[in-house]
Each structure stands twice: as structure tokens, then as C-alpha cells.
Measured scan of single mutants.
Amino acid sequence: RKWEEIAERLREEFNINPEEAREAVEKAGGNEEEARRIVKKRL
């Protein structure tokens, strides 16, 4: 699934746990840019 690939990239890029990465992607509706913004806000 594409969402899992996005979550994996976010996890590696921001050094967050898989659960946090998945939550961000879900919140963003699968949009990678939006997920990235969500993760950055949390850091």
C-alpha cells in the first residue's frame, strides 16, 4: 500500500516510530506533503 511507503519514508527521515508515521499519513489522507507538515509540527 502506498500509505505504508510514505509512512516508512517519514519514519526514516524524521526518526519517528512507525505508529507516529502511520498516524500522520492517515490524518493527511495519504498526502505525503501534508503528512510531512503534520510530523514537523509534532517535533
Rank of each mutant, 00 (worst) to 15 (best):
E23T: 12
K2T: 13
K2M: 15
R11N: 04
A35T: 02
E32M: 14
A28H: 01
A28P: 00
G29W: 03
E8Y: 03
I38Q: 12
V39D: 00
V25I: 02
N17V: 12
A28Y: 01
K2Y: 12
E19W: 05
A7S: 09
E32I: 08
A24G: 04
G30K: 04
G30P: 02
E12K: 02
E26M: 06
L43A: 08
R36K: 14
N15H: 08
R37H: 09
K27S: 10
E32V: 10
R1F: 14
V39C: 11
E26A: 10
A35L: 00
F14Y: 09
A35I: 01
E12V: 07
A24I: 04
E4K: 08
V25Y: 02
A7R: 05
R22D: 10
E20R: 12
R42C: 08
A28F: 01
I16F: 02
V25R: 00
K41P: 12
N31T: 12
N31E: 11
E26T: 04
R9I: 15
N17Y: 03
K2G: 07
N31I: 04
G30C: 05
E12C: 01
R9F: 04
I16T: 10
K2S: 13
K41L: 08
N17A: 15
W3F: 15
E8C: 04
K27Y: 05
R22V: 08
E32F: 05
E8S: 06
I16Y: 01
K40C: 06
R22T: 09
E4I: 07
E32N: 06
R1S: 10
L10G: 00
A24Y: 04
E5R: 08
V39G: 02
E20Y: 04
L10Q: 01
G29K: 09
R36M: 12
A21Q: 00
P18K: 02
A35E: 00
E32D: 12
G29S: 09
L43V: 06
R42A: 12
K41V: 09
V39H: 01
R36S: 06
I6C: 04
E19T: 15
I16P: 01
N15P: 10
K27C: 07
E34C: 05
L43W: 10
R42S: 08
I38T: 14
I6L: 14
G29V: 09
K27M: 11
A21T: 04
V25E: 01
E34P: 01
I6P: 06
R11D: 06
R37C: 14
I38D: 15
L43P: 15
K41H: 03
G29Q: 10
E20W: 09
K27T: 15
R42Y: 14
G30H: 02
K41A: 13
R22G: 10
R11L: 10
F14R: 02
R37I: 05
G29R: 11
R9C: 05
P18M: 12
V39R: 01
N31G: 07
E12H: 03
